[in-house]
């Protein structure tokens, strides 16, 4: 069954995410971070930040819900039962700190088929409350046996 490519270029309404101090700490613990900037308010302030700093890969926390909406879009028609995460690229601007607000916009960059695999590629652009681009992501999902 060939993949349906009609959703290429489709973009989704921006999703907002409020970055919380305890969420940064919870995420940082889960990935084994040890840098005090992610946990210790005094250390973060002493280093010139207004609050604890989100690790770069915190982009998953605010990016995944937005990518999820695109992935579950009926026009995209990805078969979740056979879905694997094939690749990920992230580019970062200024770091996020607790209290920041991020807005993430996702679009369908490409859908194609290659040797029995369906590729679903999404692009995300995340901006902070000042409009600065804090992260740009390319999320490659692969559906086995299309």
């Amino acid at each position: 069954m060939p993949v349906n490519t009609k959703a290429i270029g489709k973009s989704f309404p921006p999703m907002r995410y409020a970055v919380g101090r305890e969420k940064i700490r919870e995420y940082s613990r889960a990935v084994g971070e040890t840098n005090p900037l992610h946990f210790d308010l005094d250390a973060a302030r002493a280093a010139g930040f207004s609050d604890v700093v989100a690790p770069p890969m915190f982009a998953v926390v605010y990016g995944l819900p937005a990518v999820g909406v695109a992935l579950f879009d009926p026009e995209v028609e990805a078969n979740f039962a056979r879905l694997v995460h094939g690749g990920q690229e992230l580019q970062w601007g200024p770091v996020l700190v607790a209290g920041d607000e991020v807005s993430t916009e996702v679009s369908v960059a490409d859908i194609f088929e290659r040797v029995g695999l369906g590729y679903y590629i999404f692009e995300s652009v995340s901006r902070n409350q000042r409009g600065e681009e804090v992260c740009r992501g390319t999320w490659t999902n692969i559906v086995r046996g299309v």
Partner: peptide
């Protein structure tokens, strides 16, 4: 990478294949 470079502000891009 961030440990090697000196902190979270240093990582500007990371691309991986799983």
């Amino acid at each position: 990478l961030t440990d090697a470079a000196g902190g979270p502000t240093h990582l500007k891009r990371l691309s991986v294949q799983f």
